[in-house]
Write a protein that binds this DNA or RNA. Structure first.
Length: 573
RNA sequence: GCGCUCGUAGCUCAAUGGAUAGAGUACUGGCCUCCGAAGCCAGGGGUUGUGGGUUCGAUCCCCGCCGAGCGCGCCA
C-alpha cells in the first residue's frame, strides 16, 4: 500500500477548492503537522489564504470548504478551529501504515524525486593547499558534504567538487618557504621571512626534498639577501630570485609541495567522511586557455576597459559596488579572472545548478561573479552561493589563534582526534550555516559524552539491542499487524516517521542539512520516551511483532538521516 | 562611512507569514529485582535587541536606531 496521508488530504482539499472557489484553484494547498495534538493530525490554512481574494471571512470559507470535501475512509474528523484552520484527524490505519512503508523502502525511505535528476554541482572547502585544514574548513566540509548528500537523496544528480588554487602567489610562497627550510636543513644560515609559512609541515616537506635529492637544490644564500621595503615585496623578490636560481628545480619543489598538501588534504577529508568527485585545478584553466578565452569574450562584449595600465571588468553595470581588475598592469591575471573562467566552465559542463559554498568573508565576491556570468550571457540565477559564517575557536575563555601563515591554529585533524569525527560533524551541523559558531574545544572535549550525537546514536543502538534480544528474523516483521499500534506514543512516533520525507524535501529546498539533525534528535527523543514507557518484547506475539516493526522503522529513519549527515549509526556503543 | 550576515530562556541553538515561540544544557526533585540510566518523568524559567510600518495574523517581510562578526586590494 502506497497510501500517503498528506498527498491524500491535498487531493481532498483540491476538490473542495474547485467547488468553492473555481477562480482560485491555483492557490497552493499547504498542509502542516500541528504542534498541538488538539489540532489534529494535519491542518490547512487554505481558508485563510482565500480570505482576501474572496473578500470573505476565513471561518465562513472554511465551513464551505469542509462541506465540499469528498468523503474519505482515511479521515475520521474535520474541524474548523482558530482563525479558520481546517484540522484533519486521520483514521488509525492511515497513521500506522507508515511503518510498513519504511520497512518496504529501507534505505530509500525518504528519498524523493523533487530534484528530477537535475545536474547539480556543489563546490566546497576549496582551501588553498598551503597548509593543513583548520576548524573553519571543517565546518565548510561538514556542511557541503551533507548538503551534497541531501540533494542527492532528494533526487538531484550531484557532483562534489574541490577547486584547487594551484596557480596563485600563495602556492609560490609555500614553495619558497619549503625551499628556504631546505637550505636551512642543509646548514645554511638565513633570515626566514616572517611572512612565509612557518608551520612544521613546511619543515617536513623540506626534509623530504632533502632525503630524495640531497643537495641538488642548494644555492648560495648570498643571492637571497633582499632589501626589504615591506614584507610582501620581499617575498615577491625572493620568489623571483628562487625561480631564477632553481630553474626546473623550482617547478619540482612547487609541484612537490602541492602534491603533498593535496594528498594530506584529501586524506583528512576522507577520514572526515567527505568525498569529492572532482578536484579541479585552477592552473588547468590557464594551461587550456580558458582564462584567456573568458576574458576575450568579455572584451568582445564590450565589458572591459583599460585604466592605470590594468584591464578592468565593468561589474558596476551588473550591480557590483565597484569595477574589478581582471588583468594587472604586470600582465598577470587576477584570481577573479580565473574565477570567471571557472564558473563559465562549470555552466558549460552542463550543470543546471551550481552551488558555491564560501566562507562569509567572501560575500563581497558574489556580485562580481554573478555579474561576470550575466555579462557573458549566462543565467546567473543558476549559481547559488551559500555562505558559511566563521568558526571561532576557544580554549575555555581564551581565543585560539587561527593564522595559517604563522602556522598557529587548531587543525581539523586535531579536532577530529580530540572530539571524534561523528561528534564533530553533528556539532557543526547542529546550527544553520549563517549563524556564527563558537567552538569551545574544552567544552567539546569535556562534554563529548553528552553530545547530542550520542543521543541519536544511542537510540539506534538500543533498537539493535532489542532485536538481538528478540533473536527473530526482522524480515518477518513486514507482515506485522501495525493497526495494533494504538498508544499515543506509538502514534506520535508514526507521525514522526511519516514526516521524515517531508522534512527531507524542505531541507533540500533550503540547503539546510541542520534540519535533519534536529529532526533526528526529535525522533530519538520520542523513541527513548516510548522505550521507557512501554515494553517492546511483550508476550503477545502479534503486539510484539507490531512494536518490533515500529522500532525497526525508527532505526531505519535514524540510519538514513545519519548517513546523509555523514555520521555513523553504530549497532552498539 | 557603505555593503553582507546575525541579535530568541542564565548558556548553546531551533521555529515554509499561522494557533499557547520550542529543544538541548545548567539548576531542583523523582525513576534501574523489568528489552542498554549515553535513557526517562516532573518543575521553574521569554516584552524574540529597540521604535515604527505592512495584514485577519509578524521571531519571520519593509524602514529607522542600538549592538556583534565579516567585507570594502592590480591578495587568494
Amino acid at each position: 500500500m502506497s497510501f500517503e496521508p498528506k498527498a491524500h488530504l491535498a487531493e481532498l482539499l483540491q476538490a473542495a477548492l474547485r467547488s468553492v472557489a473555481p477562480d482560485h484553484v491555483g492557490t497552493e494547498i499547504l498542509l502542516e503537522r500541528p504542534k498541538l495534538a488538539a489540532h489534529g493530525d494535519f491542518a490547512s490554512n487554505l481558508a485563510l489564504q482565500l480570505a482576501r481574494p474572496l473578500r470573505e471571512r476565513p471561518r465562513d470559507i472554511a465551513t464551505r470548504l469542509m462541506r465540499e470535501l469528498p468523503p474519505s475512509p482515511w479521515v475520521v474528523a474535520v474541524e474548523i478551529a482558530g482563525a479558520g484552520f481546517i484540522n484533519f484527524r486521520l483514521a488509525a490505519a492511515a497513521k500506522t501504515a507508515v511503518v510498513q512503508r519504511v520497512l518496504a523502502q529501507g534505505q530509500d525511505y525518504g528519498r524523493s524525486r523533487v530534484g528530477a535528476g537535475r545536474k547539480t554541482q556543489v563546490e566546497f572547502v576549496s582551501a588553498n593547499p598551503t597548509g593543513p585544514l583548520h576548524v573553519g574548513h571543517g565546518r565548510g566540509a561538514a556542511y557541503g558534504g551533507s548538503l551534497a548528500a541531501l540533494l542527492d537523496f532528494a533526487g538531484y544528480a550531484v557532483t562534489r567538487e574541490y577547486y584547487v588554487n594551484d596557480a596563485g602567489r600563495q602556492m609560490d610562497i609555500l614553495a619558497l618557504s619549503c625551499w628556504l627550510r631546505y637550505l636551512e636543513e642543509l646548514g645554511q644560515t638565513l633570515d626566514f621571512p616572517a611572512a612565509a609559512y612557518q608551520g612544521d609541515y613546511v619543515l617536513d616537506m623540506a626534509r623530504q626534498v632533502h632525503a630524495a635529492h640531497g643537495a641538488r637544490y642548494v644555492h648560495p644564500v648570498e643571492a637571497l639577501a633582499v632589501a626589504a621595503s615591506d614584507p610582501d615585496a620581499q617575498l615577491d623578490e625572493l620568489i623571483r630570485r628562487a625561480k631564477e636560481l632553481l630553474g626546473e628545480g623550482w617547478h619540482y619543489i612547487h609541484q612537490h609541495v602541492l602534491n603533498e598538501q593535496l594528498a594530506d588534504c584529501r586524506a583528512d577529508l576522507e577520514e572526515f567522511g567527505v568525498h569529492f568527485d572532482v578536484w579541479f585545478s585552477e592552473r588547468s584553466l590557464y594551461d587550456t586557455g580558458m582564462v584567456a578565452l573568458a576574458i576575450a569574450r568579455l572584451e568582445a562584449a564590450g565589458h572591459l576597459y583599460e585604466q592605470d595600465g590594468a584591464r578592468w571588468f565593468r561589474s558596476t553595470a551588473f550591480g557590483d559596488e565597484k569595477d574589478r581588475v581582471v588583468q594587472r598592469d604586470n600582465g598577470m591575471h587576477t584570481y577573479f579572472a580565473s574565477d570567471i573562467a571557472y564558473h563559465l566552465n562549470k555552466l558549460e559542463r552542463g550543470f543546471e545548478k551550481i552551488i558555491d559554498i564560501w566562507g562569509a568573508d567572501h560575500h563581497g565576491y558574489i556580485a562580481r561573479v554573478k555579474g561576470a556570468l550575466t555579462a557573458l550571457g549566462c543565467d546567473a540565477a543558476r549559481l547559488d552561493v551559500a555562505l558559511v559564517q566563521f568558526v571561532s575557536l576557544w580554549r575555555g575563555a581564551e581565543r585560539a589563534s587561527m593564522s595559517t601563515r604563522a602556522g598557529e591554529y587548531v587543525t581539523l585533524r586535531q579536532l577530529r582526534s580530540e572530539v571524534g569525527a561523528d561528534a564533530c560533524r553533528f556539532f557543526y551541523l547542529l546550527r544553520k550555516p549563517e549563524q556564527a559558531l563558537d567552538f569551545d574545544l574544552e567544552l567539546a572535549k569535556s562534554q563529548s559524552n553528552d553530545n547530542p550525537v550520542y543521543y541519536v546514536q544511542y537510540a539506534h543502538a538500543r533498537v539493535c539491542s532489542v532485536l538481538q534480544q528478540w533473536g527473530g528474523d526482522p524480515a518477518t516483521l513486514a507482515e506485522a499487524d501495525c493497526s495494533l499500534l494504538a498508544g499515543s506514543r506509538e502514534l506520535a512516533l508514526c507521525a514522526r516517521l511519516a514526516a521524515f520525507p517531508e522534512m527531507i524535501d524542505e531541507a533540500a529546498a533550503e540547503y539546510a542539512p541542520h534540519a535533519i539533525a534536529f529532526h533526528l534528535r526529535e525522533t530519538a527523543a520520542e523513541f527513548h520516551s516510548y522505550y521507557n514507557a512501554e515494553r517492546i518484547l511483550v508476550d503477545d506475539p502479534a503486539l510484539r511483532a507490531a512494536r518490533l516493526a515500529l522500532a525497526v522503522a525508527v532505526r531505519r529513519v535514524l540510519r538514513n538521516g545519519l548517513t546523509i549527515l555523514g555520521v555513523s549509526a553504530p549497532e552498539s556503543m
